[in-house]
Design a protein around this nucleic acid. Structure first.
Lengths: 207, 207
DNA sequence: GTCTATACGTGGATAGAC
DNA sequence: GTCTATCCACGTATAGAC
């Protein structure tokens, strides 16, 4: 996919190897815990090459993150079965991203970085508000009061981020090893509440 | 040891000053982002004194975290009004811890650290399972199937951690600046579901 | 394109003087 | 108890040879 015409065999994509290694290292050790030396070693190349292909560490991490998420396509998937099934599909899609071979490490790396550095937190925040929240809001249309949409979006984010944190980063059991559909069944109703349900405890009595 | 007879000049309690400075620096810059030099400067003391009072950086961070949380007392507060009001009180108590002048930085520092280092993740996990989850489980008693209690506990943790992450670390708006009671009203029903409600979507009628 | 060598900074930790 | 001086291990980044 990378330029059919330019490069030819023989040079099996050092750049790609570095990128792949970076993705994994960043995801599992965080930004600060990952050194360029480690990444280079893991990719089997010289550290100087990392600087050669990507300018510096920050740029490299941006590249890693930027790669793999297609909000538009994911949205289609989520709302394909209508608004009533959306919450389940949100959770399903989110788990899919987190467990994807490339999107997973990328997102988890970003999440880890966001906790450590403000500029990465800003990146994550920006991504969610402009790419996710905004699109969801548009889909929800007039189903709920537009004035409360931002709060709803931030609540959904918090639940989803919490899920990723507990399941993949902190690895709290048994949530960490629970089957996907168990997780979907458990948290989708909460997502539904935050998306289209009552924002206060008005619907409570049915324990 | 800050006893009577010794010095008097403007030097009260160096140890305490270091601890207070460490609490803040750790909370706002994370473990790796915080240097002993920086903490010492912020406390207005010499870096060597930090090593003198607390052995090394890791020990210092443990001390910071160990300080301020009284699980037993918090539990009383949560279940004082009975099991039905517990979910609201859980959220209220959690927000209280996060916003406390000393417990707040301590907990947020721990959360940040847990994302960066496995040993801190283990610490946080251990704290929650032995101090929080176990006690909650005991209180819940026979209200729910004991076999599903661990899953329930981990689900509650994930929601709470997600809340802390979004509101205090990532500062996603408008959740970050929403009044406490708005947050309580919004997330308590979800906590209720995970504590004593249906674990699947059984309470929902239309897909 | 790839690697060697190195400059430069930062940060944890210790020894020992006052 | 407090501070000065210093050591040492990394880690980023660059310059330049092959």
């Amino acid at each position: 996919m990378r330029g059919r015409s330019g490069r030819r065999p023989g040079k099996p994509d050092t750049r790609g190897a570095i990128l792949a290694a970076a993705r994994e290292i960043f995801a599992e050790r965080g930004y600060d815990g990952s050194s360029i030396r480690h990444i280079a070693a893991s990719a089997g190349v010289d550290p100087a090459l990392v600087h050669h292909y990507f300018g510096n560490k920050e740029d490299l991490s941006m590249e890693v993150v930027k790669a793999p998420i297609e909000p538009a396509a994911v949205m289609e998937e989520i709302f394909a079965e209508g608004i009533e099934a959306a919450p389940e599909n949100v959770v399903r899609a989110f788990l899919g991203v987190c467990e994807g071979p490339v999107s997973g490490p990328a997102f988890l790396g970003l999440l880890r970085g966001a906790v450590a550095h403000q500029w990465q937190a800003l990146l994550l925040r920006e991504f969610f508000t402009t790419q996710i929240a905004r699109r969801v809001v548009r889909r929800l249309g007039t189903a709920v009061d537009p004035a409360e949409l931002p709060l709803r979006a931030s609540l959904v984010s918090s639940q989803l981020f919490g899920l990723a944190l507990a399941r993949y980063v902190l690895r709290i059991q048994p949530l960490a090893d629970a089957p996907r559909e168990v997780v979907v069944a458990a948290v989708a109703p909460n997502i539904r509440r935050h998306m289209i349900g009552a924002l206060d405890a008005g619907d409570r009595e049915a324990v």
